[in-house]
Amino acid sequence: MKSSSLCAAALFAITSTAAFAADPVGAPATATLIEGWQQADGTIVSAVQITLEDGWKTYWRAPGDAGIPPAFNWNGSRNLAGVAVSWPTPKVFGQNGMRSVGYANRVTLPLSIAAKRSGKPVQIKLALEIGVCKDICVPQTLKVTGTIAPSGNTPVPAIAAALAERPYTASEAGAGGVVCAISPSEDGLNITAHITVPHAGGTEFVVIEAGRADVWVSEATATRSGSTLTAKAEMIPNRKGALALDRSAMRFTVLGASHAVDIKGCTPS
C-alpha cells in the first residue's frame, strides 16, 4: 500500500474500541474519519482510515479462506441516505497454509456519501467490524463518529491517493469478458472461469465473488495460457436448498505483481 501524509486538521471526532474487553492483545487497530469534499452532484467524498500496529493485518471485502469479511453498520447516523465504499488494491498473504487478502500497516477506504438533505451536514456513527491477524486472529469493532460538512470541492490528497489505488476496470486493463461454466458440486456449485486479460505481472491470483453475501467462495486456483487466465473454485451457500446465481452480479478480481483488474459479470460457456 502507498501511504499518504495527512494533516492533523483533517482527522476529527473519532473513537475506536476493541470488540471484546477480554481480548488479551489489546486494540491493534484504530480508525479515523477523514473529511473530504463535495462533488458537483452533491455526493460527499470522505474516508475511513484504519491504522494497524506493526505486524498486524486486516482484510479486504473478499478476505480469502482465512479471513473475516469487514462489516459496516451505519445505524444511528443522521442525514445519511447511503454510502458506497471503495477498496484500494489489496495484497495476498499466506496464513497458516491458507491464503488471505487484505492490508497491512494502514489502509484508507474512500466513502461516497449521499445525504438525505443535500448541503446539510451528515452525522456519521459507524460500527466497523473487522478481523485483525498477527500470530493470532481476533475480531474488533472500531467505532467511528463525526460530522461531515465539507465546504469545498478540492480533493483531499489522502483520499485521492486511495481512490487511485483501486484495481483497473476491464476497459482500463484492455481485458475482454469472462466466460464461466457452473456445475453442481457435493456442497454447492463448481465454477470454472475463463478470463481474457493481459498478464498482471508475477504470480497472478484470482478472487471470485458470487454476488451474494450468503454464498462462500473457496480460494481459486489460477492457470494462464496466453491471454486467457482460467480460475476454478467452489461456491457454497450458508443454507440448504437450491442456489440461484445472477451471473451479471459476479465479480472477478485478478491480483498481480504490477496491478490488479476488477471485472464484473460473466457469460455462460
Rank of each mutant, 00 (worst) to 15 (best):
37 W>H: 14
98 M>L: 13
37 W>N: 10
24 P>N: 10
39 Q>P: 00
80 L>N: 06
80 L>W: 03
116 K>F: 08
78 R>W: 02
109 L>S: 09
28 P>W: 00
34 I>H: 09
80 L>K: 09
36 G>A: 09
97 G>N: 11
130 I>L: 03
54 D>H: 01
85 V>T: 12
54 D>V: 01
108 T>Y: 14
46 S>D: 09
53 E>Q: 07
82 G>E: 00
62 A>G: 04
115 A>Q: 00
50 I>G: 06
53 E>T: 03
72 F>K: 08
39 Q>A: 14
24 P>I: 14
50 I>H: 08
38 Q>K: 15
40 A>H: 06
23 D>P: 01
40 A>V: 12
103 Y>R: 12
27 A>T: 13
129 E>L: 06
113 I>D: 08
86 S>F: 02
36 G>L: 11
39 Q>K: 14
124 I>H: 12
68 I>P: 05
26 G>K: 04
50 I>E: 06
76 G>T: 10
70 P>Q: 04
29 A>C: 08
121 P>V: 00
106 R>M: 10
48 V>M: 08
100 S>M: 15
68 I>N: 08
124 I>M: 13
65 D>G: 05
58 T>V: 05
94 G>E: 15
28 P>L: 00
26 G>P: 01
66 A>P: 11
83 V>E: 11
125 K>C: 14
99 R>I: 15
77 S>V: 11
21 A>R: 12
112 S>N: 05
89 T>D: 02
79 N>Q: 04
115 A>S: 01
49 Q>P: 05
89 T>I: 04
112 S>V: 01
119 G>L: 12
114 A>C: 10
72 F>G: 03
128 L>T: 04
48 V>R: 09
41 D>F: 06
66 A>M: 05
52 L>Q: 02
81 A>G: 06
93 F>M: 08
121 P>A: 00
44 I>P: 03
57 K>N: 13
41 D>G: 08
59 Y>V: 02
124 I>A: 12
33 L>C: 05
105 N>Y: 00
106 R>C: 13
79 N>V: 12
100 S>T: 15
96 N>T: 08
129 E>T: 07
121 P>E: 02
88 P>T: 06
43 T>Y: 06
47 A>E: 08
69 P>K: 10
60 W>N: 01
110 P>G: 12
57 K>Y: 04
70 P>G: 10
129 E>G: 06
93 F>W: 08
98 M>G: 00
50 I>R: 07
116 K>M: 14
47 A>N: 13
33 L>R: 04
125 K>M: 05
124 I>Y: 02
39 Q>N: 15
68 I>H: 05
29 A>F: 03
100 S>R: 12
91 K>P: 00
42 G>R: 14
98 M>C: 01
29 A>V: 13
110 P>Y: 13
98 M>F: 10
85 V>M: 10
45 V>H: 07
57 K>V: 14
97 G>A: 07
130 I>Y: 00
43 T>Q: 15
20 F>G: 10
85 V>A: 09
